[in-house]
Design a protein around this nucleic acid. Structure first.
Lengths: 254, 254
DNA sequence: CGGCGGCTTGAGGTTGGTCAAGGCATGTGG
DNA sequence: CCACATGCCTTGACCAACCTCAAGCCGCCG
């Protein structure tokens, strides 16, 4: 049995965060070494664990290797709004760590594998590897685009359209990180959770899902959701995958 | 009369974009020189000019020196959702320029002064001035936080709370760039426009504004909005200015 | 002076939230 | 191995909130 380097059971390129970077810029050996150092502290979180709770200070980031989480806020009227579903390759604690206290909470939807990254070492990475910093600017811009689509969902789309858009967004994002097949994926949220994403009540999500099923657009078995008629769903939800799967190619890599 | 350098009528530090950077990192002479070069191409846009229209390609950015604009999307049902109000110091064309075609439209609300920045020169800046690139990652994260609050607004807050939150956000953002006094500011949007931000109809915005007035929380004269009872408004809208005025101070500058 | 955009107000109708009850699956402890 | 509890899905009835449509008004600008 050969002695294995830490984390060497799988090649680093398989890590969803590295894979994401790899898709938008060319990583050289120095980049890889810096990333290897960055990802040295691995931790795990069990289902329903609160990773970030609003109001506290978090001077560190967590990069997701596997598992899902939600970023959300609880309002004084008892309602909850989920701002984002966090998937492998995403960074948790961004922007919480910049502020004196977190403005959103994050909790794990299932068991997770994470990397602990101190803000200092993250900043060091940005300063010493400008191409990675530039890629991170790109990622942040894409994150903003996802958020913007979410604003449109909750603000102006009809309930049925919202669901259609949300389901397609989940499918596409999960496919990018290899957590979904061609037409189906495992929904990590309950129907009430979906409601907290798209701004509807649990029962209404149920009715709308039923309508999508009866129209033959999707099929549901347990938490497995299958997109039966993707074209029709895309039209219904006005979904353009461009903002998700397009890798920024202009400008650089040079 | 001394010979003046281009743009030297006002010191560069007064430029809202530079001022924003200056507040979060220490800019040295090389930084300033790079920024001076970046901001060399000035252009203007008249009221109602479309700066970006959805579906077209935009391989350039525009940095706002003065004036306001909205980033929005038109849906097939005829509704419009405004995703963001763009103020001086903001960057337009982000993330439009990364993709093959823009996913949102941007139009000027009034006359504007802008700087044209090609994507290449922007990328060059990021690669050659890593501290600026790092600050831009921070800005992008703060932008994401603003968007996230907007999701909460449209998704789960009551109409009255939405308005309260939106008005306070506008006041705070405008104060940061010196476009608002202690308690009041000029609203650049019509009531229907406000509705397109917060996801309400024009008439309902009118009714809710009336309610805020009758409760003695705000006062309106023309487009001038005055926050009469800031504390009560903050409670009503659950507004925490932290995500806007806090400058990231952790990590670096070192 | 005339037109237009935006504010204001009202009436009516639909949508979607709330509340409540029942069913089903899963997991747990005796 | 069964009894029970729990969480989630499902469905229905009711009701309020908010949208739509519409009309009148004001102020501004040409």
């Amino acid at each position: 049995m050969a002695v294995q380097r830490k984390m060497a059971t799988k090649p680093m390129e398989d890590h969803p965060f590295i894979a994401k970077l790899n898709r938008s810029i060319k990583l050289d050996d120095a980049d890889m070494a810096a990333l290897d150092a960055l990802l040295s502290r691995r931790i795990t979180a069990k289902k329903a664990k609160d990773l970030i709770v609003e109001g506290y200070e978090y001077p560190a980031l967590h990069i997701v290797e596997s598992g899902f989480a939600i970023r959300y806020k609880l309002l004084h009227n008892g309602k909850r709004q989920i701002v984002n579903v966090i998937v492998p390759g995403d960074i948790i604690g961004f922007p919480a760590c910049f502020y004196e206290y977190a403005v959103f909470s994050v909790t794990a939807l299932g068991d997770m594998n994470l990397h602990h990254v101190s803000l200092d070492s993250f900043t060091d990475l940005c300063l010493s590897r400008p191409n990675i910093a530039t890629a991170l600017v790109w990622f942040a811009a894409r994150e903003a685009a996802i958020y913007a689509e979410h604003i449109i969902d909750t603000g102006r789309r009809e309930p049925l359209e919202r669901l259609a858009h949300f389901l397609l967004e989940m499918l596409t994002r999960l496919q990018v990180v290899g957590c979904a097949s061609e037409r189906s994926f495992e929904m990590p949220l309950s129907q009430e959770g979906i409601g907290d994403v798209v701004g509807l009540s649990g029962p209404h999500v149920n009715r709308m899902l039923g309508e999508l099923k009866s129209k033959g657009l999707i099929a549901v078995s347990g938490h497995e959701i299958t997109i039966v008629d993707r074209a029709a769903l895309q039209i219904l939800g006005e979904f353009r995958p461009a903002y998700l799967d397009r890798v920024p190619v202009h400008g650089r890599p040079r």
